[in-house]
Design a protein around this nucleic acid. Structure first.
Length: 960
DNA sequence: CACAGAACGTA
DNA sequence: CGTACGTTCTGTGT
């Protein structure tokens, strides 16, 4: 390690590295393909990546002790005043590059690097000044720049690092190198450049004069001044051209002279670096979706080159982030051999590597701080434990109710075994290994593994680590589908390339045996990828204090979800059939009615054709268009048209029929989907709850989606009557949180008025309305209540006055007045919501009450629409996300309570703020009390968490 | 056969 | 011109 020099007595000369920020970013941007460097949110990162890795390379190779980066400032420089067309042909930097400059500056800030912008001057002038400062201080000076004007700075102690044809190849431009290439000294270089011109900067030189002739003249006459004095002696076309362009050349010379004596307000002693803000840097790297190698490379460069007081030694971190290790495939033919293999390679079983998965247990309500503290305490040593973990990969079908297990791979310490599960002779050995070693096991997608294992009769306890869940916590906006995709995203590796490379190495270690199949090799690689991701993500989670979120929330809730999916939801087939018949009949009637009115038979499901009939055939005036330019024919538009149509007219009948058809057809389709999803074996519907899809932390439901069963009107709600308790159960319980998100806002903001509103126990919206309008509760009209209610619910979405006015059918002015009055009444709520966005903009991410993060790079977008959309999402994320965290905690608590009390009642469905539980006979009251308590006391807030419950023989009847 | 867009269901 | 999802359908392009 190089120690920082003591400024009072320098023995070893310092090395000052000066960087031309814009030119380096520019070169990086055009050198690296933007397609390969873009985050999932669409933020290009190629320039950031190129810049930082180049900087790291230079630091590693050159060991500078001082460092500064110069940037151009927006707006003209003094050169524009001199030369109007200066840089005129240089294309305006593309947006994809411009958007990266702030990111580069953020990274430099986090890395503790000084960067300088000087209004009115170019980065070049700052560089010239810095170089002079370094020279005067006796430093060795390195200038990293893609601009040849920098060559004039070169002397015996000053070298320009200039990117060659390949961005990565830096040429060391010393006095000798300049003379060799151009035939002039560095001091003469500006004269040469003035004669030749600079095409990239749109600076014309003398036509027909290139480096060669320019150098020849400089030699002959000593300098540009000498050439001009003897211009009439130069013969031929070139001499003539020179005489015609003397003014231009002199101007060029004036422009390409670097200013070297700016007042930058810093001294070279200030240009230390390496005081890395690891939290900031880590957040930024995550936002940029940089992989482990990149991070390690950059961190290493900065940690090894300096020894700043307080700088963190990142060697340990870097070491733990090992490179991908391709395992050797071992052949195991019998159970004894498999057990022996496990004993040899799997980590020894210990009691203390496994942290508990009990989030805030206890009879009395645990305070939120207690839980958070507890969560964080459990983060200790996760990295170490995961580094010593082994990996299990399963291949098969994870569809609930139709699962199967084909193959499993066990891998540890550079070895792997592939076990085909078709052969059942190894089952017991596999079970034994999993049972004893689960607490040191890493997997990718525990819930899916549970489904597959279940089909083979295997029991898999909660593993130490899950890379799918961890990846979701690290970057919830990323949605990959395969292990390969996850690895490419999080490790920034090229899996096909690794695969090719692995072909030769992935072999059975015993050469006497048969060679491994391609499948075996692929599986060995899969295990290696999971293992590498586990190490990488464990470090990531530990740094962000999110490890407990994985262990205490996501992993335990995986088990609950697995059981819900495995059990499925029982349905009344007859009821579904009858609903389908009713909806189909009505749908058909409406279709004929619409066709009659239109005078032609066409596909009513085609908005295009509806638009044609309405706005072309019938001559109605379109109210609005979709963004792709088609007629809007959605329900809101058609309803307005319907209201304005003449009663009894063809258009009126047509619109009425279409609207009715749309509604009933949708219901028919939903019922049909449900019928198709009924499992042949048990008659239940097995949805899959996606645990890593919704960016806020919510679950989603697919195949089929049971979280969007109609509920808004009576007709749709009938669909819910088809959901019934399974055999052996005699009722369903529906338990839902009332106004969780609003209650969270009350707690987070600390707004006394809103807190009191919840504590009052009165009709909440009526109570709030009385505060907003300043009139007694009893005098609140229905309109007033519903307006305030809409406002309250719109809060967490960043609702605009316009949106509110649309929803309530009032003028935007009235809506705005309501909004103003609302925020006057609940001032702290307003402040809180604004602070959410402000903090997100500052830190780059939002956080839920349990530390679940979501990154919002778009908050810095120059595009207003994009930026404002990000602001609304950033406002909503911590609120929706905290509600999701709470529900997950509640599910874990409820499931555990039911089991520990020996009850048979079980959770069947989760619909964001509602749990549906099937109740066993005799457990109605007791199970309801347990579930309600688990939900109400999942966390302690400043306001009570209110849960309303209802019991019935079907889902519709259970609703209250 | 894959994809985007429109529409609409939920919290 | 309000957040977060999933599914179905059409129409278009391969």
């Amino acid at each position: 390690m190089v120690t920082m020099s003591d400024t009072s007595s320098t023995h070893v000369p310092d090395t000052l590295l000066v960087i031309d920020g814009h030119s380096l970013a520019f070169r990086a941007f055009f050198a690296l393909p933007v397609e390969s460097f873009t985050t999932s949110q669409g933020q290009p990162t190629n320039a950031v990546y190129g810049f930082l890795t180049m900087l790291s390379d230079v630091i590693t190779n050159e060991h500078p002790t001082r460092l500064a980066v110069a940037f151009d400032v927006k707006g003209g420089t003094f050169r524009n005043d001199l030369l109007e067309e200066y840089k005129g042909t240089r294309e305006a930097a593309p947006q994809e590059l411009l958007s990266q400059l702030p990111l580069i500056q953020q990274a430099l800030q986090a890395l503790g690097v000084t960067y300088i912008e000087q209004p009115g001057y170019e980065g070049d002038d700052v560089i010239g000044t810095l170089a002079s400062m370094g020279q005067q201080a006796g430093d060795r000076v390195l200038v990293l720049s893609g601009d040849r004007d920098a060559f004039q700075l070169i002397d015996d102690d000053t070298t320009v690092l200039y990117p060659g044809h390949h961005f990565k190849d830096l040429k060391h431009m010393t006095p000798a190198a300049v003379e060799e290439k151009y035939g002039v000294t560095p001091a003469q270089y500006p004269d040469l450049a003035a004669l030749r011109g600079e095409k990239a900067d749109n600076i014309p030189g003398v036509p027909g004069v290139g480096d060669g002739f320019a150098a020849k003249w400089i030699h002959q006459y000593g300098s540009l001044q000498g050439i001009i004095e003897h211009a009439d002696q130069i013969t031929g076309k070139k001499g003539e051209a020179l005489r015609d362009n003397i003014d231009q050349v002199l101007l060029n010379r004036k422009v390409n002279a670097l200013v070297r004596d700016l007042d930058l307000g810093v001294s070279v002693d200030d240009l230390t670096f390496g005081n890395v803000d690891h939290a900031e840097l880590s957040a930024l790297f995550s936002a940029l979706q940089f992989g482990s190698r990149t991070r390690t490379k950059i961190l290493n460069a900065f940690s090894n080159s300096t020894a700043q007081p307080g700088a963190v030694d990142v060697d340990a971190i870097a070491d733990s982030d090992q490179q991908l290790q391709i395992p050797v495939l071992d052949q195991v033919t019998d159970a004894a051999a498999l057990i022996a293999w496990a004993e040899q390679y799997l980590p020894a079983v210990t009691d203390d590597t496994q942290t508990t998965n009990e989030p805030a247990t206890g009879e009395n309500a645990a305070g939120r701080m207690d839980i958070v503290t507890q969560l964080h305490q459990q983060s200790n040593d996760c990295e170490e434990a995961v580094n010593a973990s082994w990996t299990l990969v399963a291949v098969g079908n994870a569809k609930p109710g139709a699962s199967s297990l084909k193959t499993i791979v066990l891998s540890a310490q550079g070895h792997a075994v592939v076990v085909a599960m078709r052969d059942t002779s190894l089952h017991d050995a596999v079970q034994q290994i999993i049972s004893t070693h689960a607490n040191t096991m890493s997997v990718h997608g525990y819930k899916a593994l549970l489904h597959m294992a279940q089909s083979a009769g295997l029991n898999v306890p909660i593993p130490l680590f899950d890379t799918k869940l961890a990846g979701y916590l690290a970057d919830p906006d990323y949605t990959g589908h395969t292990i390969d995709e996850y690895a490419e995203h999080f490790l920034r590796i090229d899996v096909p390339a690794v695969q090719t490379q692995a072909q030769g190495t992935l072999d059975f270690d015993n050469m006497d045996d048969e060679t491994p199949t391609q499948d075996d090799k692929d599986l060995g690689l899969q295990a290696a990828l999971v293992s590498a991701m586990a190490r990488h993500l464990a470090r990531e989670l530990q740094q962000r204090e999110q490890y407990a979120l994985l262990r205490c929330i996501e992993l335990p809730v995986s088990v609950v979800l697995y059981r819900m999916e495995q059990e499925g939801a029982a349905v009344d087939r007859m009821r579904l059939d009858s609903l389908l018949a009713t909806f189909a009949e009505e749908s058909g009637r409406m279709e004929r009615m619409a066709w009659d009115a239109a005078g032609s038979e066409f596909n009513l499901s085609s908005p295009k054709k509806i638009g044609k009939v309405l706005f072309e055939d019938m001559g109605l005036t379109p109210l609005r268009k979709t963004k792709s330019g088609h007629y809007t024919t959605n329900a809101a538009t058609l309803t307005t048209l319907y209201a304005n149509a003449e009663e009894g007219s063809a258009a009126y009948v047509f619109l009425g029929a279409i609207l009715r058809h749309r509604g009933v057809n949708k219901l028919q389709q939903i019922v049909q989907t449900l019928i198709d999803a009924i499992n042949r074996t048990d008659g239940h519907i097995h949805t899959t709850f996606e645990q890593t899809v919704a960016a806020t932390g919510r679950l989603s439901s697919t195949d089929p989606n049971l979280q969007n069963i109609p509920n808004r009107n009576a007709e749709g709600r009938d669909t819910r009557s088809a959901f019934i308790p399974a055999e052996g159960f005699d009722a369903l319980l529906s338990a839902d949180y009332s106004q969780v998100e609003l209650r969270l806002m009350a707690d987070f903001s600390g707004d006394e008025a809103l807190i009191d509103a919840f504590k009052s126990g009165a009709d909440f919206h009526r109570y709030v309305a009385s505060l907003v309008y300043g009139i007694p509760v009893d005098d609140i009209s229905g309109d007033q209540r519903s307006h305030v209610k809409a406002m309250s619910y719109g809060l967490a979405y960043g609702l605009s006055s316009y949106g509110l006015s649309q929803q309530l059918g009032i003028t935007p002015k009235e809506a705005d007045a309501l909004k103003q009055q609302y925020f006057r009444t609940f001032g702290k709520v307003h402040e809180y919501l604004e602070s959410l966005v402000a903090t997100a903009r500052e830190r780059g991410y939002t956080e839920t009450m349990f530390g679940r993060r979501r990154y919002f790079p778009a908050l810095r977008s120059p595009n207003r629409m994009v930026r404002e959309a990000a602001e609304r999402a950033a406002l909503n994320a911590p609120i929706q996300g905290s509600a999701a965290d709470i529900m997950k905690m509640a599910m874990i608590r409820a499931e555990r309570a039911l089991r520990s009390q020996g009850m048979r009642s079980r959770i069947v469905l989760q619909i964001h703020d509602e749990l549906v539980v099937q109740l066993a006979p005799g457990e109605h009251e007791s199970a309801t009390a347990l579930v309600k308590d688990a939900m109400e006391h999942a966390v302690q807030l400043a306001v009570p968490l209110d849960v309303s419950t209802g019991i019935g023989t079907d889902w519709q009847l259970a609703q209250h």
